[in-house]
Simulated assay, not measured.
Amino acid sequence: MMKTILHKANERGHANHGWLNAYHSFSFASWYNPEKIQFGMLRVLNDDTIAAGMGFGTHPHDNMEIITIPLEGDLAHKDSMGNGTIIKSGDIQVMSAGTGIQHSEFNPNHDQHTKLFQIWLFPKFRNVEPRYQQITLDQSLQKNDFAQILSPNPDDAGVWIHQDAWFYLSDFDADFSKKLSLKKEGNGFYIMNIEGEIEINGEKLERRDAAGIWETNEIEIKANSSSKFLVMEVPMEQ
């Protein structure tokens, strides 16, 4: 029997630090909600706006798969593996923190903010060698389709991580609908609606609403207006 949980945009945790305006889908930092700890192996989904010229100082991570998807503007990245890059809207970045990394992220522009999703998944394996990957996505593939942007397989489309997860970005026209099947039995879907309004099995998601759906092998997503959204297929158990 299919199970669904709805996470409305206005129910997320919120912290405005001035330089950082952050919305948390799951418990993070000083915001704790016992009913929103994680969805399967998805532990963090932060919707961050970073002010011009500001950012996160050097800080550590370990044993987490960390995915960054810029939505607007640029993000400068430096890490203890020697990477120093700029990621932009249309890119995706992943770090396997593994045995431990340190990194910093900041908005290099002095005239515009940067918006991004930062997503953490628990890894399939602990204490892996840290790694970094960044690619530019072909956004044309997202038009009225599920464009794969992440998988467990280095040879597949998108970036890869140490977890049996698949991510898709989509840009649907109004009234377009399409079905998506699980890649791995027992996984679940977590859908974040970025812009517009979509409908999944009769449940409407407006801007920044999200839904978790599991114990089903397939979902159908219909766009009620021109919409952009992120679908994350994740293991429900390790």
Rank of each mutant, 00 (worst) to 15 (best):
K3A: 07
E11N: 07
R12Q: 09
G13E: 15
N16L: 06
N16G: 06
N16E: 07
H17L: 13
L20I: 11
N21Y: 03
Y23N: 13
Y23L: 13
N33R: 14
N33D: 15
E35L: 10
I37D: 07
Q38Y: 13
F39S: 02
M41C: 08
L42I: 08
L45A: 14
N46V: 15
D47P: 11
I50C: 10
M54E: 12
G55W: 06
G55F: 07
F56N: 09
H59M: 15
H59D: 15
P60D: 15
P60V: 11
H61V: 12
M64P: 03
E65S: 05
E65Y: 01
I67Q: 04
P70V: 10
L71Y: 06
K78L: 09
D79Q: 07
D79R: 05
M81C: 12
G84C: 12
G84L: 13
I86S: 03
I86W: 02
K88F: 11
S89D: 12
S89P: 08
G90P: 08
G90L: 10
I92S: 04
Q93Y: 08
V94D: 02
M95D: 03
H103M: 10
E105H: 11
F106R: 12
N107Y: 08
N107P: 09
N109R: 10
D111A: 07
Q112T: 14
Q112F: 14
Q112L: 13
H113D: 11
K124P: 00
K124H: 13
F125A: 10
F125M: 08
N127K: 04
N127C: 01
V128Q: 14
E129P: 00
R131N: 11
R131T: 12
T136W: 01
T136I: 02
L137K: 06
L141E: 09
K143T: 11
N144I: 06
D145R: 09
D145S: 12
A147Q: 09
L150T: 03
S151C: 03
S151Q: 03
P152H: 02
P152I: 00
P154N: 08
D156R: 08
D156L: 09
V159D: 03
W160M: 00
I161F: 00
D164I: 01
A165H: 03
W166T: 12
Y168M: 02
Y168L: 02
D171C: 14
D171P: 13
F176W: 11
F176I: 09
S177K: 13
K178C: 03
K183H: 07
K184A: 06
E185M: 13
E185R: 11
E185C: 08
E185Y: 12
E185S: 14
N187W: 02
G188L: 01
F189P: 00
Y190E: 01
M192L: 14
M192T: 13
N193E: 04
N193T: 08
G196Q: 02
E197G: 04
I198G: 02
I198Q: 02
I198K: 03
E199R: 15
E199N: 15
N201L: 11
G202M: 14
K204N: 15
K204P: 05
E206T: 15
R207Y: 05
R208N: 13
R208T: 12
D209W: 04
D209R: 09
G212L: 01
W214V: 00
W214L: 00
E215H: 07
E215N: 10
E215S: 06
T216M: 04
T216N: 07
N217C: 03
E220A: 05
A223G: 05
S225A: 10
S225K: 11
S227L: 03
K228G: 12
L230G: 01
V234I: 03
M236I: 05
